[in-house]
Every structure is written in C-alpha cells, then in structure tokens.
Design a protein around this nucleic acid. Structure first.
Lengths: 267, 267
DNA sequence: GAGTGGTCTAGACCACACT
DNA sequence: GTGTGGTCTAGACCACTCC
C-alpha cells in the first residue's frame, strides 16, 4: 500500500486533453493543455454564465477539487491565475470571492487620474449631460465588434473634483445588453458606472485597453469643462472587455491635467 | 520509516522567521514571513549584488533548494514571484535567467508609444542633443532621493520614427553611478539606453512610474520637434527604479501624438 | 540520455475568521 | 472548534533543450 501508483491522471479527466494524441489533425501544435488550465476554463465558464455572482463566495478549494476530481493543489493553481487577473479575490479564512466593482477601494479601479496632491478620491460630482440611442458609426461598431446597423447607447457626462469639471466623457454601449438604461437611472444611481452595469445588467468589466493622446478641445467641449483659455487635454480612448474578452464599452474621455495627472506603472 | 515526521521546518532555516515567537518586541504585528518570501529576499540579494548578471542563468531549482535547505517547491514559488515581476525569465528545458533590456523583443519595454497603424517598432533614429553635468534642482533631487547639492547628469535627446521627430526627452541621472557617461558614448551606442546602463554601468531598471499630462510646448521644444503650428503634446514624467527600489533615473518626455499614441492596459 | 523547468498528487501543518 | 485559504514537503512523471 506504500506503492500505490498515482493514477495516470490524464485518463478520466474533466476535459480530455486531446482526443487522439499523435493524430494531429493537420495542425502543427498538439495543443497540450495542463489540467489546471482546463480547470481554469471551467471556473471561467461558471463566472461568465453568472452561476457565481460578483461579491459572492465560490465553492471552497476542497469542494472544487472533489467536483472536478483533481487535487486541491491543481484547483489552487487555477484560482491563483484568476486571482492574478483580478477576476477572483482570495480572503484567508473566509473563502474565495468573485471580484466586483462595488467596493470602496476598487470602485474607480480603471480611473487613473490622480490629484497632484496625491488625493486618490473618486469624482465628487457626476453629471449626466445626455443619453440617447443611435446607430453605431463604423468606428464605434468596430470597437464594439458589432454591425454598423446595430443600435448603441451614447452617454455624455461630466465628472467634477471639488467643484471643478475635470473629465468630459462620451460612452458608447451596445444597446441590447443595456436595454432600459436611461439618463434618469444613471443620474439616480449612487456609485460608479461599472458598479451599475454589474448590478443592474449583469455585465462585469474585467479589463480594458486605453489609447492616450494630447488634443485641443473644440468650443462645445471647452464650454462643458468651463475652459476659457486654450488648454490642451488628455484624450483617453478606452475599450472595456467583459469575461469572454468581448468588448462591451467604448469610451472617450477628455481629462483636464492641471490639477490632476494620469498615473501609470511600468514593469 | 513510512512515518518519518516531516522536519518542523522553521527550526533550522536560512533565515529565522522571528527570534522569539510570542515576545513581540513592542510591535503590533509579529511580522510572520513565509519561507518562500525569505528565499525570494535571498535571491533578490544575489541579483542586487551583481552575483548573477543580466542574461545569465541562475542556479537550477534543485541546486538552490539544496543550498537553502528547502524543498524545490518552495524555491519555485520564490522564483515564480520574481518571474511575475519581470526580474527573472523562466525557459523550460534551459533554465532560469536574469532579465535584461538587451533583447530584441523587450528592448523598448518601458516605451508605450505605438504607431497608429499598429507598428511596434522602436525609434529609427536617436539623436543626442546635449549631455552635461550640473547640480540637482530640488525637484530632481527629490525624485532621485539625493541631496540638492549632489551633481547629476542631464541628457537631452530626440527620437524619430520614419524621419519624423516624435519624442523630446530630458533624462536626469545621479552622477556617481554613471561616472564617465558622455554624449559621445551615448551617441556611439547601438541599442536602447537601458541596455547601455545595464552593460556599461551595471544598473538594471526594474520598474517605473509615470505621470502623464497634456501640455503645450515652448518655442525651443517646438523647434526640436519640427513643429510649426500650435500642437499639444503628451508630457510623460518617469521615475525608474532599480532592484532595491532605489530611484535611479528621472525623465521627462514630450510625445507627439498625431502619428502615435500611448498605449495602456488596465486590469 | 541527462538536465532543466512544468505539472500533479497527497498529506501535514499554520494562519485566520467566524461562531 | 470548524472551516477556509496559505505554506511546505516529497516524490512521480511530463515537456523541452541540448549533446
């Protein structure tokens, strides 16, 4: 009994690593996938499908190990990666939780604008200027990976810090997943926009890409930001993605950078 | 022999986790430190001290495990973290290597400027405008964590893409570690600046922080970038850090963002 | 084939949070 | 105390690289 051979584990596993090993069906790579990656994919599926909702706990490592018929260590490694990607949050002694935008310290996770004095507060005031439904331009359609004929919501808002309008933002959303979103609901909601998306539409933004440029505002933009003299602004174009790497938001922000700056860490 | 008790490992270990466990010497936190963190610190020390040089292989996991009297798994976890921080690079079948700026695909690791058409090429031309030695201003001294009376090197250069001057950069370095750096050596060197720092001065930049704003250039800056009409620029202030988290460079870049953009990923 | 990192397991024990 | 994640170990086997 001391020499029980460990089960040749790739035999009866949750996901077959490959149907036939040497019979590479024309592809150059056999696409070997470690067990923990397969587990990770399964966990991801449970997140995508909404089986586990933001801020709730997922099953314990031991339970998941039993469910998937693998060791706890393998589940750990899968969860480790999801935690590193900010999809899950581990809390020792309590459990592993689905990440959310609805918590104080991560509320403005994607907002990199910091006050010169180091204050890391979110905007004090959020004013919805406009919210309307229209057809996607080719640019927007491309960013959101939808057809130009599809309809989108366009939201314009101004964020202020200490009474000073600092950010002018245009946000475009595919109309279908956000059916029922109006200027009133946006104005009424206390909290970050991504928090609203999560709670009211079940859309959780996972990651985003930004393209940053320096621009000069036009007359209308100057007016909304209370700018009198010629002032360069940061143009921040963002595409935000949800679980399955599907783009779910396109956003263009104009940032005033006299009292604030955009902070980035390189490594 | 099947029940050899595993050695109560915190007894004779490389670094004592704490001299006396409950005798918290006035501090609120006992500062429990896992073994792998201690190993990580030791590895970090070998990197800092220059014992292992960039692009060379460090000892194998098995050897390190023997050296530190811990299991291979513990060494693995320490290396995993250093690899995640881009200090080490793992290569299956070959070994674990000290990260370097001197490789094609990571040469411009900290340069986030991308051509609009997606080209990810580095600058085609690098022209050194000036390189002189002077006393640190209070701003520079603060950024570099040195005394205002200390001397620093100031380098000014222009980077061009496809013949078009696109980046105007001022770089400040503490004079001491970079003794002997001249405009001639900078001009002569083929490769990225951080590659030169690494090879000729043993200074390896590990991470950096950037503050980004939109600005309007003055007359001299416009001239150096061949700008005729009023054009807003991206101002990118960077502090770069070496192993021990010591600031070793302050840099201010002015980026032309008509043909390029600054790319950032959020997660 | 020998050496390296990569995966997987099983089991012990520690630190932390709730109750 | 019980349950959860966190650490550590020892050993087996796999995948990749080079000789």
């Amino acid at each position: 009994m001391a020499s029980t051979p460990p089960p040749s584990h790739n035999a009866s596993n949750p996901v077959a690593a490959g149907d036939a090993l040497p019979a590479s069906s024309g592809l150059g790579t056999p696409a070997f996938s470690p067990l923990y990656q397969q587990i990770k994919a399964l966990l991801l599926q449970s997140l995508q499908s909404g089986e586990w909702k933001p801020s709730t706990a997922i099953p314990s490592e031991i339970e998941l190990a039993g469910r998937y018929k693998v060791s706890q260590g393998t589940v750990r490694k899968a969860i480790d990666e999801l935690a590193a990607e900010n999809l899950l949050v581990r809390r020792q002694g309590k459990g592993t939780f689905v990440a959310t935008h609805a918590e104080q310290h991560v509320r403005y996770r994607f907002l990199r604008l910091i006050a010169n004095n180091g204050d890391t507060e979110g905007p004090a005031e959020r004013r919805i200027v406009d919210c309307k439904r229209l057809r996607a331009s080719t640019e927007i359609a491309k960013a959101l990976a939808i057809k130009p004929s599809d309809s989108v919501l366009q939201i314009r808002r101004v964020l202020s810090f200490a009474g000073q309008p600092t950010i002018l933002e245009d946000v475009w959303l595919p109309a279908a997943p956000f059916k029922g979103l109006t200027a009133e609901r946006l104005t009424a909601y206390q909290g970050a926009m991504y928090e609203l998306f999560e709670k009211e539409f079940g859309v959780h933004m996972v990651r985003a890409e930004e393209k940053i440029r320096a621009v000069l505002p036009d007359a209308e933009q100057e007016k909304l930001l209370h700018i009198n003299s010629p002032t360069p602004l940061l143009s921040v174009e963002r595409i935000a993605y949800t679980y399955n790497d599907a783009p779910m938001e396109f956003r263009r922000g104009l940032y005033l950078t006299d009292t604030h700056y955009y902070r980035n860490e390189l490594s």
